[in-house]
């Protein structure tokens, strides 16, 4: 729509154009242009320090871009505060678990649902009496297999359960753009499938745009429709999983074989 050259592609739910951020002299993300369409799962890969999480931060708004733009459904959101972007439909789960530690598991999820339903400025009602919100929170906890821990404080949870809750908060937000930053990092082999099934379930719902930073190749192969490779902050490759994984650039970026000079 907004570009004349590629009118054949579907409307991008999310698009970054020449997105750049500099920290001092270091260019962490360097002119990355990419569009992400609904119904598609895009894996963002690259070695440590490639700028994957920084790229996420630019999209969800935790870091301000030095140059370039972020558009959601054609609207420029580059300068918008984090909470506003969330309200427009960008949801993010974090790489390092980022929860409300001294509140209960249920309350963590309930707060997200309350935010989505714009109930935060209700001052004189009793939060524990808002049955609909609480029921919905229980449903989300059921989906990530955390019902039994609903009453526990976050600090009492195991690492794996905290990762699940991290994802549960994103599920409760039910955004149009899901951003997962290594959702299964540090989880045991038997715990990870719960989350992967959830993401696969989201994929079936075609209205969702899903971005996934991930290292594990088996996860990428099973979930991703497309792979975007970042290397030294630049877009190094973008395409279908099989092609990208086989390409030289990935072999170099990922396996660090700098000897493979084209």
């Amino acid at each position: 729509m907004e570009t004349t050259a590629t009118t054949t592609t579907t409307t991008a739910a999310l698009e970054t154009s020449d997105l750049t951020v500099r920290f001092g002299g270091h260019v962490a993300v360097n002119r990355v242009s990419c569009r992400f369409t609904p119904g598609e799962v895009t894996a963002i890969v690259g070695p440590n320090g490639a700028g994957k999480t920084t790229y996420f931060n630019l999209i969800s708004g935790q870091i301000a871009a030095s140059e370039g733009t972020v558009h959601l459904d054609g609207a420029d959101i580059t300068r918008m505060p984090v909470a506003e972007r969330t309200r427009l439909g960008i949801g993010r789960a974090f790489q390092l678990t980022n929860l409300f530690p001294n509140l209960s598991v249920l309350e963590n999820v309930r707060l997200v649902i309350q935010a989505r339903r714009h109930r935060g400025f209700s001052l004189l009602s009793i939060a524990d009496r808002q049955v609909a919100l609480i029921e919905e929170a229980h449903e989300v906890l059921g989906a990530v297999k955390l019902e039994d821990q609903a009453a526990q404080k976050v600090t009492e949870l195991s690492h794996g359960d905290q990762r699940k809750l991290e994802v549960a908060l994103l599920m409760a937000l039910d955004p149009r753009v899901y951003m997962f930053d290594e959702p299964t990092a540090g989880m045991s082999v038997d715990e990870a499938p719960v989350l992967l099934d959830l993401i696969a379930g989201l994929k079936a719902d075609t209205g969702r745009t899903i971005l996934l930073v991930e290292h594990k190749m088996d996860v990428i192969r099973s979930l991703a429709d497309r792979i975007v490779v970042l290397h030294n902050g630049k877009l190094a490759a973008d395409g279908a999983p099989d092609e990208v994984i086989a390409s030289d650039v990935v072999q170099e970026a990922y396996l660090g074989r700098s000897a493979v000079d084209a």
């Binding site: 984090v82 969330t86 409300f100 509140l103 707060l111 004189l124 009793i126 939060a127």
Partner: peptide, 22 residues
């Protein structure tokens, strides 16, 4: 103990995430 009060507690616990959930 209202929804508003809970948001305040969330902000006290983790303002970064409170902002990120909207």
């Amino acid at each position: 103990n209202s929804p508003f009060g809970r948001v305040l507690q969330a902000i006290r616990e983790n303002d970064f995430r409170a902002e990120a959930i909207g």
